[in-house]
Deep mutational scan, measured.
Amino acid sequence: HNLTITQGKLFFHYNPKLCLSEIHKMEEVSGTKGRQERNDIALKTNGDQASCENELLKFSYIRTSFDKILLRWEPYWPPDFRDLLGFMLFYKEAPYQNVTEFDGQDACGSNSWTVVDIDPPLRSNDPKSQNHPGWLMRGLKPWTQYAIFVKTLVTFSDERRTYGAKSDIIYVQTDATNPSVPLDPISVSNSSSQIILKWKPPSDPNGNITHYLVFWERQAEDSELFELDYCLKGLKLPSRTWSPPFESEDSQKHNQSEYEDSAGECCSCPKTDSQILKELEESSFRKTFEDYLHNVVFVPRKTSSGTGAEDPRPSRKRRSLGDVGNVTVAVPTVAAFPNTSSTSVPTSPEEHRPFEKVVNKESLVISGLRHFTGYRIELQACNQDTPEERCSVAAYVSARTMPEAKADDIVGPVTHEIFENNVVHLMWQEPKEPNGLIVLYEVSYRRYGDEELHLCVSRKHFALERGCRLRGLSPGNYSVRIRATSLAGNGSWTEPTYFYVTDYLDVPSNIA
């Protein structure tokens, strides 16, 4: 807008934040220059609390790290170098490059900038070799853009010569660093050979998330399962459950009422301010606690030095998902009996873990797994792929695949051998790939016309006998059925096997 004052003059007093240069501009645009008398524009009460600059400061050096910015700028000295009290560095987070010096300023003089007072450097006698002032900004957020400017702080001049310097606002972004852990990993099994893994992005990506790394490792069953005799009275049979499938998407929606109208769909109840505040506090606490764990609990591995020492970490090797089922080394339970199943799973520490690289999504279907087997899954978020990966501390989750139908069934015939004193040795093959492992066998036998009897055969007993022995049988026709019990439950009964026990007292003698 054009402003013209045809008559009258300007009068400025007691404006401590208004620089004289701005008042002189007002004289020019209003056409009143030359009308004012000496005392109409006070030299001592206008701009006496402001830094009124008329020179431009330029930054000469900028260096960044993930949490620091090192700045240096060209030296500046007023005509009387004693008038320079120091520099004021202003900075704040700036997602967009549209910041002005006066953003967030209120009537009390406060604003949204963080201000650092910096002492002037030592003055050199040689004007050509003056030290460049600077400042190291610490405690910054990774991968965050900051708006920065600097200006001088000078003393009051009796001659009211307006001098000083100020830089333009520059924008500097800190470097990326390792992201925080992925949030809320959930693993479920939808079949006997697959596990579905879902997660949420890290709360602090500290860069642009480029991919996720998912490692999985087959877990050995508890050692007590191999040692305890679950045929003993009072000892509860062990059981394991597989990871249940995901709930429906509708039930997972946030901010939804727990109660549904019987007449149909209901609208979600909005969260109160107290609920939102509580969630923010919980989120802040979780982030602080995660940072504490990362800094205190997890110790970084030592990389190899120039002395030739090897990095103890196993090298990563990509495998196809079809090879995942046989990740671990199978060892027989008892070496003397080769027909026992290889369900003991000690994992070799030198073995390469299978892994998958996930790009542009937060889910993965891990296939080719062994049925009813526990897996430990390790999830890392990465925001750099080359020249070397920059990934987060791992988040861990466990899951067990679903049982395989008929995996616990005894394959092959049940054979028998009759000894003296009416002892019958029953023999059968253990299931080759049971659900988890076989903890015991149930032997059901009966003599024709009598009630059915049951015998429990422990895992250890089966390994020693290759089956079991029935003792003290009365003469007669017998039928026997056997079924295995694994961590997933009972298998199917075998087809009945028949044998006849004679009275050993009636056996004919070869003595003449």
Rank of each mutant, 00 (worst) to 15 (best):
Asp204Val: 04
Asp204Met: 06
Gly207His: 02
Asn208Asp: 15
Asn208Trp: 15
His211Met: 04
Tyr212Ser: 12
Leu213Ala: 13
Glu217Asn: 11
Glu217Arg: 03
Gln219Ser: 06
Glu221His: 05
Ser223Lys: 13
Ser223Asp: 15
Glu224Val: 07
Leu225Gln: 08
Leu225Thr: 10
Phe226Tyr: 12
Glu227Val: 13
Leu228Ser: 03
Asp229Cys: 09
Asp229Leu: 08
Asp229Arg: 06
Asp229Lys: 08
Tyr230Ser: 11
Cys231Leu: 01
Leu232Trp: 08
Leu235Glu: 02
Leu235Lys: 04
Lys236Ile: 11
Ser239Pro: 15
Thr241Arg: 11
Ser243Tyr: 09
Phe246Pro: 11
Phe246Thr: 10
Ser248Val: 10
Ser251Met: 05
His254Ser: 06
Gln256Ala: 14
Glu258Phe: 15
Glu258Arg: 14
Tyr259Met: 10
Tyr259Leu: 04
Glu260Phe: 06
Asp261Asn: 13
Asp261His: 15
Ser262Pro: 06
Ala263Phe: 08
Gly264Leu: 14
Glu265Lys: 11
Cys266Trp: 11
Cys267Trp: 01
Ser268Trp: 04
Cys269Ala: 02
Pro270Ser: 05
Thr272Tyr: 02
Asp273Glu: 12
Gln275Ser: 04
Leu277Arg: 13
Leu280Glu: 15
Ser283Glu: 07
Ser284Tyr: 03
Phe285Asn: 02
Arg286Gly: 03
Lys287Gly: 02
Lys287Ile: 02
Lys287Asn: 04
Thr288Lys: 08
Phe289His: 03
Phe289Lys: 01
Phe289Tyr: 03
Phe289Thr: 02
Phe289Leu: 03
Asp291Arg: 02
His294Glu: 01
Asn295Thr: 04
Val296Tyr: 09
Phe298Glu: 02
Phe298Lys: 02
Pro300Leu: 05
Lys302Arg: 07
Ser304Met: 13
Gly306Ile: 10
Gly308Glu: 13
Ala309Ser: 15
Ala309Asn: 10
Asp311Pro: 09
Asp311Asn: 11
Ser315Ala: 14
Arg316Leu: 12
Arg316Trp: 15
Lys317Trp: 04
Lys317Asn: 07
Ser320Leu: 09
Val324Leu: 09
Val327His: 09
Pro332Lys: 05
Pro332Glu: 10
Val334Ile: 03
Ala335Met: 14
Phe337Cys: 08
Phe337Tyr: 08
Phe337Lys: 05
Phe337Val: 05
Asn339Lys: 10
Thr340Tyr: 08
Ser341Trp: 14
Val345Cys: 13
Val345Pro: 08
Val345Asn: 13
Val345Tyr: 09
Thr347Ile: 08
Ser348Arg: 12
Glu350Thr: 14
Glu350Arg: 09
Glu351Ile: 04
Glu351Lys: 09
Pro354Gly: 10
Pro354Ala: 15
Phe355Pro: 09
Phe355Thr: 07
Glu356Gly: 14
Lys357Ala: 15
Val359Asn: 08
Asn360Ile: 08
Lys361Trp: 08
Lys361Thr: 11
Ser363Asn: 09
Ser367Asp: 08
Gly368Asp: 09
His371Cys: 06
Phe372Leu: 05
Thr373Ile: 14
Thr373Asp: 13
Tyr375Gln: 04
Tyr375Gly: 02
Tyr375Val: 09
Ile377Phe: 09
Ile377Gly: 13
Leu379Glu: 00
Leu379Cys: 07
Leu379Arg: 00
Ala381Val: 04
Asn383Asp: 01
Asp385Leu: 08
Thr386Tyr: 10
Pro387Thr: 13
Glu388Cys: 13
Val393Met: 11
Val393Glu: 05
Tyr396Pro: 08
Val397Ile: 01
Ser398Ala: 07
Ala399Gly: 12
Ala399Leu: 02
Thr401Ile: 14
Met402Asp: 09
Met402Ser: 11
Pro403Leu: 02
Glu404Ser: 08
Glu404Trp: 08
Ala405Phe: 15
Lys406Ser: 07
Lys406His: 09
Ala407His: 15
Asp408Ser: 07
Ile410Gly: 05
Gly412Leu: 11
His416Arg: 10
His416Ser: 10
Ile418Thr: 14
Glu420Phe: 05
Asn421Val: 13
Asn421Tyr: 08
Asn422Val: 04
His425Phe: 12
Leu426Arg: 01
Met427Leu: 07
Trp428Ser: 07
Gln429Cys: 12
Pro431His: 03
Lys432Ile: 15
Lys432Met: 12
Lys432Arg: 07
Asn435Cys: 15
Leu437Lys: 06
Leu437Arg: 04
Leu437Asp: 10
Leu437Thr: 00
Tyr441Ala: 01
Glu442Trp: 06
Glu442Gly: 04
Glu442His: 05
Ser444Val: 15
Ser444Thr: 15
Ser444Ala: 08
Tyr445Ile: 02
Tyr448Pro: 07
Gly449Val: 00
Asp450Pro: 15
Asp450Val: 15
Asp450Lys: 12
Glu452Ser: 06
Glu452Lys: 08
His454Trp: 02
Leu455Pro: 01
Cys456Val: 01
Cys456Ala: 01
Ser458Lys: 01
Lys460Ile: 11
His461Lys: 11
Phe462Trp: 11
Ala463Met: 09
Ala463Gly: 12
Leu464Lys: 06
Glu465Cys: 10
Glu465His: 12
Cys468Ala: 14
Gly472Arg: 07
Leu473Gly: 02
Leu473Ser: 02
Ser474Lys: 05
Ser474Asn: 11
Ser474Asp: 09
Asn477Asp: 14
Tyr478Gln: 03
Val480Ala: 09
Val480Gly: 02
Val480Met: 12
Arg481Met: 06
Ile482Gln: 01
Ile482Met: 10
Thr485Glu: 09
Thr485Tyr: 14
Thr485Lys: 06
Thr485Asn: 08
Asn490Val: 03
Gly491Gln: 03
Thr494Arg: 03
Thr497Leu: 11
Thr497Arg: 13
Tyr500Cys: 14
Val501Tyr: 08
Val501Asn: 09
Val501Cys: 09
Thr502Glu: 13
Asp503Gln: 09
Asp503Arg: 10
Asp503Val: 09
Leu505Ser: 10
Leu505Val: 10
Leu505Gln: 06
Leu505Glu: 09
Asp506Gln: 09
Val507Leu: 02
Val507Thr: 14
Asn510Thr: 00
